[in-house]
Design a protein around this nucleic acid. Sequence first.
DNA 1: GAGTGGTCTAGACCACCTC
DNA 2: AGGTGGTCTAGACCACTCC
Lengths: 247, 247
Amino acid sequence: MGTTQVDAVPEPKYWHLKTVLSDALDSEFTVGEILPNERELAARFGVARATLRQALEQLELEGRLQRRRGVGTTVAPPRFGVDVGPGELSWPGAPDDAWQTADCEEAAPPASVAAMLSEGPDAPVHSVRRTRMTHGQPVATEMLYVPHASVPGMSGIESAGGSARGRAVLRELHRLELEGQERAVELGSARADDARQLDRLPGAPVLVVTTRYFAQGVTAAVAVSTYRADTCRLTFGDTAPVALMAG
Amino acid sequence: MGTTQVDAVPEPKYWHLKTVLSDALDSEFTVGEILPNERELAARFGVARATLRQALEQLELEGRLQRRRGVGTTVAPPRFGVDVGPGELSWPGAPDDAWQTADCEEAAPPASVAAMLSEGPDAPVHSVRRTRMTHGQPVATEMLYVPHASVPGMSGIESAGGSARGRAVLRELHRLELEGQERAVELGSARADDARQLDRLPGAPVLVVTTRYFAQGVTAAVAVSTYRADTCRLTFGDTAPVALMAG
DNA sequence: GAGTGGTCTAGACCACCTC
DNA sequence: AGGTGGTCTAGACCACTCC
């Protein structure tokens, strides 16, 4: 028979759909433009709505689309670079950093953090919540865990709770000499509270940056930062010579 | 009426299911253990299979589970840290690095890479494909784009194609003095060819690391590395003092 | 209230792996 | 051949936003 054509492995519909949509986004749509609704798109492509959604989900994961319940699906702007910690050492909350201190409470850290702090798993630590804004949008939330041993000056302070207390913890932390830091990035999904602050639904994909700060020979603090994965590209201002950046 | 109870926003079933399963994984399963199949789990929890799958997908995204078609769903080991470029400058392919050179061809780079290379968008460059193994498993694939201008010594070489040629390109590249590098991390989904090499399905979530190498005042090379997001935690051997690491 | 995306169902068939 | 996860369908209802 004339079956010279290799059909190989049949490409899933949603995968093909994704490439078709992706090409259409490049050529026929502009940033911010609103797409037809899911029911119409599904009908237009002759697939079930669930199949279409599978394609849209992937495109959203890649930062090509933005979907908002009750509103619609829009073409996302290119991801913007968010600088995550410079090559040089610096404490969180340094005068020039991009974070706003939001709150502070005493609590036992999650087990994974406690393991890095070399204290008992249930020892309460200062837990400072911060938020990072870029272009007027929240792009990240952070929990900074500071053991009592790192900020002895805080013992006497009677906590003007909230953000003021958080700033006080940071101030005390800055008295230590920072000896080193260590950073890791992994994929996660937004917890309910993070999601609310990031203006996303629970479970939305996020990039979790864990930073460990060393001082006085021990881990003096641990920061867990949660970045929106759909809109952010994390950049590391590594070791690019200044002279080059200008040219 | 006695409606003192705030029911607030009803938690989606799959979300609740996810936390139940997550707790069960912690307490009742061991790494590598195989879970009941999806149809049985769905029946056991009284939900449709699609709903159960939504929960499993999230757990897989978080690196808690591993699913393989035709085999089953197993409890994943904790993510392992993969060191991504040290604080110090170093060319790709340095004697101690973790990559294996697989192949090399001449081709025009993707538009996003071409934009960084300050050559015409259609100028062919050396495209070296490499693979990174850890614990016997492929964890990343990489495409390294090297403009002809960066490796003038290659013009005469008549290409013993394949990996040998790739190694030759790297050797030539090392003759340049590396002046700086710049790195970015973002979320992506595996293209078909990457997926095959990473032993995943197309569309699987990956962490894309883009590294730009500067030499002689220009971008001498660009590497696009694609890491499995489910199994890897990217670590940056930043600036931790050696003395501390020993303790 | 109308329209959007988000959740959920109960089926079906397919591709892949193992025996 | 039998069992697994992956894809797909055609519906339904819900939560949210905007008018």
